[in-house]
Design a protein around this nucleic acid. Sequence first.
DNA 1: TGTTTTGCGATACGATCGGATTGTAAAGAG
DNA 2: CTCTTTACAATCCGATCGTATCGCAAAACA
Lengths: 190, 190
Amino acid sequence: MPKVVDHEERRRRIAETLRRIAADEGLEAVSLGQVAAAAGISKGQVQHYFPNKDAMLRYAVRTLRDQVERQVAAGAADAPPDLRTVLVALLPLDDESRTEALVANAFVWRAFKDDEIAAWFRAGYEQLREALAALVEAELGLAGLDAAREADLLLALTAGLADAVLLGHRTGDEAAELIDLHLRRLPGGR
Amino acid sequence: MPKVVDHEERRRRIAETLRRIAADEGLEAVSLGQVAAAAGISKGQVQHYFPNKDAMLRYAVRTLRDQVERQVAAGAADAPPDLRTVLVALLPLDDESRTEALVANAFVWRAFKDDEIAAWFRAGYEQLREALAALVEAELGLAGLDAAREADLLLALTAGLADAVLLGHRTGDEAAELIDLHLRRLPGGR
DNA sequence: TGTTTTGCGATACGATCGGATTGTAAAGAG
DNA sequence: CTCTTTACAATCCGATCGTATCGCAAAACA
């Protein structure tokens, strides 16, 4: 057996470069050549680790989700997770989360056509929904259907606010304030 | 002067074809050749009416906004406009509004890079925001900052729900129900 | 009835795309 | 050392892209 390399590590580095390009210039600027050049490797190497472009894009989505999870986890690192903290952590407030949000947005359209990407979006949505429902239960004393519906509401609201912030329609502070306004009005809320 | 044609009509027809392609296959499938072929005209004719591809895309966005306005106006055609009716009209519930939402979504990323497209998105947002604020004032008796903030909340929530419906995370009925749940909780609400 | 101007089809151009092919250096296996 | 397998670089391919150019038919004006 020849030269030993960490395949997963190579793929991860390529995917990171891909996401950087996608965040900076959009998915349409992502090509095998561009990714290779930006990563400082040859086109052949990219081809060596991904059978085709779609596989590369799908991998980039998969590892993006890991990043988002880490982002939320970091936002609620200290103390037990807090509903407001988690929601605000989903907003694109700093450069890093803004980049992530941009990349996710760039992939949204792909999700309409690519079932595998759609599945990852769906899984991310469900996971977040369940986590939020659990927090709603814990903090507001709601359970079952009510908690689930409140979680849907919160998720939709936060997603809409995140888009508004990305597009510059609202500032991050305004978005956080609006989340607070909504939370204050929840039954059982403080 | 030679053959007389309605330039605006030609451009409108081209833009409609462009949006159809964008809704079906995404913005990346939009090319001069594809648009021309789908519209049953020659590539040269498309070039005759638009100086370049970007101008064509911008025109398609501009006339898309007209469509959305007509959609909302039609949704609230009879009787004085009703807050709930307007919000639900913004959801992608039928094929037509789903197509519009898909096209708008396809253009969102362009708005990050193209200032003219961004301006149209911004203008649409502000217009909707003001209309909603007026409805909030009329129906809930709120005024000024409160009405504006409630409008922001409603707009973000509806946008988030629209995306969730588009991605198949929620059904249209569920989204409408969630809007009702939120409205029921507003101060001054019925 | 020329002349001119516009509408638009046809085609050519250079760039870039995703993917396939080929060549080669390196490193464990025997 | 030899052989085989892997990692990767280089290059080529056909297709498609946006844009430029050329040519001509139709129509209003002279």
